[in-house]
């Protein structure tokens, strides 16, 4: 195994891989934020108690959690492309083939799956806020929005964090899948490198190490976030 091919600069693939890392982190972060927002919305729908809100949210999460993420990417990228081409030709009269931007599709697809998992985490966290807290908020005359904003949300955030840390790890690992639609993140860069140098093990092993390092560093960030969310909590009282 020749590690020289992973060097920085024109002779090695170090800088290409580093650029891949930036893309991977960008996709994962964007998808995570969008997915968390969408997941919060879905959780609110599930908690609303009205079937008109409840049922669509339940159908969405069950569907997304039952279909392979890779299939979702194919469906949105190729299916969406075909659909856009069809709309373009039949409605707008443009007969060129429409190709969807792969980076955006990657972010959207991972966000869609993050939303399904985040929904369950956030719903559980909201339900875990003690009922007495809500009664107390009502007793001091808070409005519904004040109660949600000042009492429920900060506590639910703290309780959702462990689960949302797992969801982040999911999102990070899922970014490898967008390599199949040509986004040059870590995995795709490794594939290109291994094709060019005929050193597949070196490159995929490098990709493995890179993912583990990103996972480790981001884990530490979440530990810090948890510590800050837990400040003021008296354990065991």
């Amino acid at each position: 195994m020749d590690l020289g091919i992973l060097a920085w600069g024109d002779t090695g693939w170090g800088d290409e891989l580093a650029r891949g890392v930036l893309t991977t982190v960008a996709i994962a972060s964007a998808a995570y934020l969008v997915g968390a927002a969408l997941g919060t919305l879905l959780a609110a729908m599930k908690l609303s108690g009205t079937p008109a809100m409840n049922v669509p949210a339940a159908v969405y999460t069950t569907t997304m959690r039952g279909i392979p993420e890779m299939l979702v990417i194919y469906l949105v990228f190729f299916g969406g492309g075909a659909l856009s081409s069809w709309i373009a030709s039949s409605v707008l009269g443009i007969h060129d083939r429409v190709d969807l931007p792969s980076f955006a599709v990657g972010v959207v697809c991972i966000a869609l799956s993050v939303a399904a998992y985040a929904c369950e985490v956030i719903r559980g966290a909201v339900l875990a806020v003690p009922g007495g807290q809500i009664e107390a908020a009502e007793a001091v005359g808070m409005t519904r929005s004040q109660r949600n904003r000042l009492v429920v949300a900060p506590q639910a955030f703290r309780m959702a964090l462990p689960g949302m840390t797992n969801v982040w790890q999911f999102a990070l690992k899922d970014t490898a899948l967008v390599s199949i639609i040509g986004v040059t993140e870590v995995m795709r860069t490794a594939s290109i490198g291994s094709d060019a140098t005929k050193q597949p093990f070196t490159f995929y092993f490098a990709a493995l190490v890179i993912f583990i390092v990103i996972a480790y560093l981001s884990q530490r960030l979440f530990v810090r976030l948890q510590a800050s969310a837990d400040r003021g909590v008296r354990w065991g009282s």
Partner: peptide, 18 residues
């Protein structure tokens, strides 16, 4: 648990060729 399954599959299938 902290690396993508796709990387693991490629590492075994293509990586073994090295």
């Amino acid at each position: 648990r902290s690396s993508p399954l796709l990387v693991q599959i490629f590492l075994i299938y293509y990586g073994s060729g090295q």
